[in-house]
């Protein structure tokens, strides 16, 4: 599946592994929560970065203490109408300070792009025929936002990309100001 980051198709350095599939040298695996919990020691000794995959019914609260082990967390949308990963993303970014890649996988549509971005996702596995231009255009359609969310806050994820905005600009949900952080994820 093509991976979009910063509105570009990028090469995916990670490999999503089924639970039975063996680790291979040099392969950066994304593993299920079950596999992580069962093979934690083995995975940590493999000498490669580890990614974690959560189903929509698996809360990130379960791994809040272990985030430093993951370079990427993939949150799965079984259908685009399953909104649980939005909450998971905000928890990971805002409460637990996860700074790695937060990837939306599964049924990911451009009409949801803005919501995803605003909740803290910064990578999107999309259908093979998705054009990055259409993705970029979808994000450009709606610029205003009424409420603070993960893209407003000086989370660690944001600090790693952009300077913190001035303090007075942080709180108002109601302003037309450009959002440097959101923009950096969008383009």
């Amino acid at each position: 599946m093509p991976l979009i980051k910063d509105s570009q198709i990028v090469e995916d350095v990670w490999t999503s592994l089924d639970d039975g599939a063996p680790l291979a040298p040099g392969v950066w695996p994304i593993v299920s929560l079950e596999r992580w919990q069962a093979e934690r020691e083995t995975l940590m000794e493999a000498g490669v970065p580890i990614g974690l995959r959560l189903r929509s019914d698996q809360s990130p609260r379960a791994i809040a203490e272990e985030l430093e082990h993951f370079g990427v967390i993939a949150l799965a949308f079984p259908k685009f109408t399953d909104g649980r990963p939005y909450s998971s993303a905000r928890l990971l970014r805002e409460r637990y300070g996860f700074t790695g890649e937060l990837r939306a996988v599964g049924h990911v549509l451009r009409d949801q792009a803005l919501f995803l971005l605003r909740c803290g996702f910064d990578a999107f596995e999309v259908a093979p025929d998705t054009s990055p231009d259409a993705w970029r255009a979808a994000l450009a359609k709606i610029k205003v936002r009424y409420q603070s969310a993960a893209d407003h806050r000086s989370t660690a994820g944001r600090l790693s990309r952009k300077a913190v905005r001035p303090a007075q600009a942080r709180t108002p949900a109601l302003s037309l100001e450009p959002e440097p952080c959101a923009a950096s994820w969008a383009y």
């Binding site: 685009f80 109408t81 399953d82 909104g83 939005y86 909450s87 905000r90 803005l114 919501f115 995803l116 971005l117 605003r118 909740c119 709606i142 936002r145 009424y146 409420q147 969310a149 993960a150 949900a173 109601l174």
Partner: peptide, 14 residues
């Protein structure tokens, strides 16, 4: 109304 308009987290509730 303003807070809930296009709320990024709560637009796909159960």
């Amino acid at each position: 109304r303003q807070w809930s308009s296009l709320h990024p987290e709560f637009s796909f509730l159960p």
